[in-house]
């Protein structure tokens, strides 16, 4: 079985503020709290628009639920909410400590794999 160990090569520490990829700089506003707070208006506007267009262009092969205006929007919204709201009971039922099976868990080194060397290589 292969064993990986940390390379002796020193890695230059990154600066949180300065070491940003040049391509990311025009998109830093995505991390702005105000943008995040108001992001909901984009999908919500799209949703309203699509419901309105859906009234003008109904399904050509409708299912029984398509008689309700915005049926797919309702399915999407309530399905999503149902899935997410199931998380709490599911977590309390199924979640166990990471070392539950005693096999060492999933890959989680404290350092990047990039800086590791494989003894088999």
């Amino acid at each position: 079985m292969s064993l990986i160990k940390k390379s002796s090569q020193q890695v230059k520490p990154f600066d949180k503020e300065r070491d940003i990829h040049p391509f990311a700089i025009p998109f830093l506003w995505l991390g702005n709290k105000k943008v995040i707070k108001n992001f909901i208006w984009i999908p919500f506007s799209g949703l309203i628009l699509m419901i309105l267009i859906g009234l003008l262009y109904p399904q050509k092969h409708p299912a029984p639920w398509d008689v309700i205006p915005g049926s797919w929007a309702l399915i999407g919204f309530f399905s999503y909410c149902l899935i997410v709201l199931c998380a709490k009971p599911l977590t309390s039922l199924l979640a166990q400590p990471e070392d539950y099976y005693g096999e060492g868990g999933l890959l989680d080194p404290e350092f990047s794999v990039e800086n590791m060397v494989d003894e088999n290589d």
Partner: peptide, 18 residues
């Protein structure tokens, strides 16, 4: 109809997430 109803589903899911 396909584009609109698919977008309804996806936008509704994103709205629910937000």
């Amino acid at each position: 109809d396909h584009v609109v109803f698919q977008l309804q589903l996806l936008f509704a899911a994103i709205t629910a997430f937000c």
